[in-house]
């Protein structure tokens, strides 16, 4: 089957700043596709281009087989979009936010009303449906903006950090809804900073940083490839640390972490060889997506 999204040498510049640097990737029909990357990596920019609200500077991008430059309207007809910022309408009630938006997709009258009630119910917003948006908590607003994107039963949804700021209950509810959509064959493209979310929800991931793709694959494959099957946690005291790090480097391992604990990832899907370094306390644990992510993107804070 043809991919639902195909980006080829996709580039986006803001003046001299290159936010997305000639990336190529595909999203396949029915899959849940995840975009990972530190702050400022280019996730939002990429998703905005997919949602046809920001034109690419160069390269090609097709969504649902259509060109974002020439068939933006037909693409938007079939998409549901949740932006990083809620963009809810403060002059309308929660329920009217859904109904007003759904109208642009041809949903109106009692059909729109019934659908709004259904969607509100699912997101646990029924009791707040008449409330002003400003009176909703941050998490409720987020749920409402996701609910809005589901009103017209889109063929594909684009969600930019859908669960940021949600409590564990709401997050689980969103995951549940996303899983339902996936069951119905809806393609999902999302970004997230929650590694657990990416690992459990996404079929395939792309890790980007500075507008470039660093790695891609299934969550399991990414972890094994980059952080091995297991990660060793070494407890080393201050003066010892430099020696151990050097010894590890001689074996070709990079040590991560600050303080007393050093994390050493395995290679080629294996566990790291850290015996014989004179470290008394070694614990092995399964490597996680977070290990892989940090190994790929480094530990420096991003101020963009």
């Amino acid at each position: 089957m043809d991919p639902v999204v195909r980006a080829t040498q996709l580039e986006k510049k803001y003046g001299r700043l290159t936010a997305v640097d000639r990336i190529s990737f595909e999203v396949r029909p029915g899959e849940t596709f995840g975009l990972l990357g530190p702050n400022g990596a280019g996730k939002t920019t990429t998703m905005r281009m997919m949602a046809c609200i920001s034109p690419p500077t160069s390269g090609d991008l097709t969504v649902l087989g259509m060109d974002v430059r020439r068939q933006s309207r037909a693409i938007r007809d079939a998409l549901g979009v949740v932006a990083q910022h809620d963009g809810l309408d403060p002059d309308l009630s929660a329920r009217d936010n859904l109904i007003v938006h759904a109208r642009y997709y041809g949903l109106r009258g009692s059909v729109a009303g019934a659908r709004a009630d259904e969607v509100l119910e699912f997101f646990g917003l029924t009791a707040r449906s008449r409330d002003e948006v400003d009176n909703l908590s941050g998490g409720l607003k987020r749920r409402l903006s996701i609910a809005r994107a589901f009103m017209h039963r889109p063929r594909m949804v684009i969600l930019d950090e859908p669960t940021t700021g949600l409590d564990p209950q709401s997050r689980n509810r969103v995951w549940e809804q996303l899983a339902n959509l996936k069951q119905e064959g809806v393609t999902i493209a999302m970004s997230t900073h929650y590694m657990e979310e990416a690992a459990s929800l996404c079929d395939r991931l792309v890790v980007i940083d500075h507008g470039r793709i660093l790695a891609e694959g299934t969550p399991d494959a990414l972890v094994r490839e980059i952080a091995g099957a297991q990660t060793a946690m070494l407890k080393v005291e201050g003066p010892e640390r430099a020696r151990v790090v050097r010894a590890l480097a001689e074996r070709g391992y990079q040590a991560h972490g600050r303080g007393m604990l050093l994390a050493v990832h395995g290679r080629d899907g294996d566990r790291p060889q850290v015996e014989g370094l004179g470290v008394a306390h070694v614990i092995y644990r399964p490597s996680t997506l977070e290990d892989a992510f940090l190994a790929l993107t480094g530990r420096e804070l991003r101020d963009e």
């Binding site: 037909a74 979009v81 932006a83 910022h85 809620d86």
Partner: peptide, 14 residues
Amino acid sequence: IHKIYESLLTAPVN
């Protein structure tokens, strides 16, 4: 201020 055009334009509105 409220950025509602931005979400409006994700819908098929020109």
